[in-house]
């Protein structure tokens, strides 16, 4: 059927729009996903990621625009698409009152296959939760739930996987493991479309789309997106971080200022502002222990910069 290496694009999406009542959820979304790549859709909650996934998995009809998965139209070819895709919704959607093994069996049966037949596909993931296979799914930890959900989405050997926020709400170790598994699945030729609100996961994708308010702001490789960031970026730290952010925004030459964990990231107009001027300005306001460094932009800086245009 649809093999990686064939010249059919895994996903083609053209001008897709979708509104709920009158609130637009997707505006003119256009992109393509190549066979065998990991395509990340990155943006905050409420940006429209889940809606996009539901349109692509034939669960929702777009108001306008067209989309196809593995060469099949999401409206006319929905039955074919449903046979070939693996879908993992954003919310844990397995049967909590059934055991791990029963859940997997049900999803295998749903796709006319058995656990044994495709065990090799899920072995790496499933072997980690197999010791708990008689435990009810509802009693699993967040990370194990996601591994089970991924196993269930994989059990029928789909050619393309749609994973809606697979790493949300799970611990950092499990997150890391999950991404390692995605790399392995990619090496087996499975196309993966994955969404995440975590900007730090962007670099793990082959290509990413930054989504905000239902719009794709930019589609590129993670490196391409970072190299598109041309502003001067500084990280600033001080003894009183909460007061610092307001004072930074008052300084002439500071274009944007956002809190990023331990630091505040500011983009500056370096024709009028130098580190020395900034330091003295902040000292006038009573700040001390000030550290100012020039840094390389990350995906999140790019996202904020794009969002502010």
């Amino acid at each position: 059927m649809t093999l990686s290496g064939s010249n059919i694009k895994a996903v083609v999406c053209t001008d897709v729009c979708k509104s709920y009542e009158k609130v637009p959820a997707l505006r003119n979304i256009s992109f393509t996903v190549e066979q065998g790549e990991i395509f990340g859709v990155i943006g905050p909650d409420g940006a429209g990621k889940s809606t996009l996934f539901r349109v692509l998995t034939t669960l929702l009809l777009a108001d306008s625009g067209t989309a196809s998965v593995e060469g099949m139209n999401v409206v006319k070819g929905y039955k074919e698409i449903r046979k070939n895709v693996g879908y993992m919704p954003g919310r844990f959607s397995l049967y909590q009152d059934l055991t791990v093994e029963e859940n997997l069996k049900i999803f295998a049966t749903l796709f006319h296959t058995t656990i044994e037949e495709n065990y090799y596909l899920i072995k790496d993931i499933y072997s980690q939760i197999e010791p708990f296979k008689t435990r009810r799914a509802g009693a699993l930890s967040g990370g194990m739930k996601q591994k089970l959900a991924l196993s269930c989405a994989l059990i029928h050997k789909p050619s393309i996987l749609f994973l809606d926020e697979p790493t949300t709400g799970i611990d950092p170790v499990s997150r890391k493991e999950l991404w390692e598994m995605l790399r392995k699945l990619k090496s087996q030729g499975i196309t993966i479309v994955v969404s995440t609100p975590y900007m730090d996961e962007a670099s793990l994708c082959d290509r990413i789309a930054l989504i905000r308010d239902g719009e794709f702001m930019k589609i590129d490789t993670p490196k391409g997106i970072i190299s598109g960031f041309r502003k001067e970026l500084w990280a600033v730290r001080g003894s009183n971080m909460s007061a610092l952010i307001g004072h930074l925004r008052e300084v002439d030459g500071v274009v944007t200022c956002f809190a990023f964990g331990d630091n505040h990231h500011i983009t500056v107009d370096n024709t009028i502002l130098t580190k020395e001027i900034l330091r003295s300005r902040l000292e006038e306001k009573g700040h001390n222990e000030i550290i100012i460094e020039k840094i390389e932009a990350g995906i999140e800086d790019c996202f904020m910069e794009l969002a502010n245009r």
């Binding site: 539901r54 998995t57 034939t58 669960l59 039955k79 449903r82 046979k83 895709v85 879908y87 919704p89 919310r91 844990f92 959607s93 397995l94 049967y95 909590q96 999803f107 749903l110 796709f111 006319h112 269930c152």
Partner: peptide, 13 residues
């Protein structure tokens, strides 16, 4: 409500 219908629909059944 639990979202399992969503999964069941994306299947050949």
């Amino acid at each position: 409500e639990l979202g399992t219908m969503e999964l069941l629909l994306v299947s050949p059944m």
